[in-house]
Design a protein around this nucleic acid. Sequence first.
DNA 1: TCTGGGGTCCTAGGACCC
DNA 2: TCTGGGGTCCTAGGACCC
Length: 393
Amino acid sequence: MDAFYASVELLRYPDLKGQPVVIGGGRRHEPVLREDGSREYARLRDYTGRGVTTTATYEARDLGVHSGMGLMKAAVRAPDAILLPMDFDAYRMYSRRFKAAVAELAPVIEDRGIDEIYIDLGDVPGARDAVGHDPLGGVRALAQEIKNNVRRATALSCSIGITPNKLLSKIASELDKPDGLTILTLDDIPSRIWPMSPRKINGIGPKAAARLATLGIHTVGEVAAADPAWLIEQFGRSFGAWLHEASHGRDERPVVTHSEPVSISRETTFERDLHARHDRAELGEIFTRLCVQLAGDLQRKGYLGRTVGIKLRFEGFRTVTRDLTLDLPVQDAEAIRAAAGACLKRVDLSQRLRLLGVRMGGLCRPGDVQARRRTPRPARAVAEPLPQNLTLF
DNA sequence: TCTGGGGTCCTAGGACCC
DNA sequence: TCTGGGGTCCTAGGACCC
């Protein structure tokens, strides 16, 4: 989906069409209805806090505002841009609608989050009918139908890439955004893919791209030209081999239509950094609230879990995790809170905190009888000796 | 003026088991 | 008396994605 959150908001506030709009941050900056019926919107320049841009309209992107960017930084680049808070319920509703619209025409769908899917057209009648005289005419028509159906169901546009595999489709879908439709064959790889930055490949992030650049590699084509043995030397057996394959557009992953969650979590970044001692009561409340929310999520979704984990982010952004695997799966807030509390005791809390999170892994369904480990776990040595008065929580 | 929240997967060491 | 090999589980951290 194109600029998904922002596009959904524009359906609600059509007067903002054509303007730089940024979605992100919290509650406070809802538009206010004036007496004459017009609306007063918050501007990016008025924002203070720790929020980030989740989505920016293409007009805002032209001003240098991109998703993931801190709103305070975005405000320097586009002070006059409109700022709207997130409305996840609305996005979820539109997400369901667009996926249902696609499924009417092509039911083999892999979920990739709220605004993205992979579709397997392999068995869709029509996609291959034209093979022989116009091999791609059939798929192009089908893709256009899918786009039409999504627009009919949601009034939103999407961009589609049609290629032999998921890796290439992900890249292709971004070649003609917004409202794009791009078809690529293996023959197009040298001309269309190799000139690109390695960053365009799903799985090459900022770190890998920076390392490639250090090695003098700035395009996918240069990765493809590199000796695979050398790539493995530089990046390890698994990632190095994958880099070689990916740069040649090779990807055998199937479209996965069903998957079970691995973990469920809740976390929150505080408006100001909190100290375990000075802000003990506040932190304790937040900690308990996270556990209660997590328990609610687990119960609503019908899972229990055996591995309770916590995540702490300190001032300066250093992140630490601890987890604890219980003998039996649990689901209730009290058990989660107790296990998470035990995890917390293993962390040095002398630095102030900016984030606290609670996570449940090792998920199973209530019916499952978990084979419980026969042997009790040995007591683990505490990694860091803790300052005496900071261990209580 | 630093950097959300919800996830997945990978690596690597140590414990433990056969 | 200085010592295998294979496997799983647990834990911590990090890269990456939407």
